[in-house]
């Protein structure tokens, strides 16, 4: 049982770390601000989501698991709101380089 849990953790955290990598590369390599924003918020939230998914089997109790999930929910909400606000600001100021 413990082996199955560890495999799930390793898989989840690895995929999460990959999405963080993808997001960072996107932030550094994409050509303009709006595409960079896209790369960041998508990859970033997926990355955290998979890390949380990977850590769930390691959490000791139901309460700890729910806490992990609510952290991810809050991060999703933050990412969605911030990307909207920044995108609108960039579009208004007209400097999308």
């Amino acid at each position: 049982m413990s082996v199955a849990r560890d495999i799930m953790t390793i898989a989840g955290v690895s995929v999460g770390a990959f999405f963080f990598l993808a997001g960072t590369v996107g932030l550094l390599r994409f050509p303009d601000t709006l595409t960079r924003l896209h790369a960041l918020t998508k990859a970033d939230n997926l990355g955290l989501g998979f890390v949380v998914l990977g850590l769930l089997p390691q959490s000791g109790s139901l309460r700890d698991g729910l806490k992990l999930i609510s952290i991810w929910m809050l991060a999703l909400l933050a990412g969605a709101t911030v990307s909207q606000l920044i995108a609108r600001m960039v579009r208004q100021s007209g400097t999308t380089r």
Partner: peptide, 10 residues
């Protein structure tokens, strides 16, 4: 600001 957001999530 976006980079700060990334650093926050990371």
């Amino acid at each position: 600001m976006m980079a700060t957001q990334l650093i926050g999530t990371a």
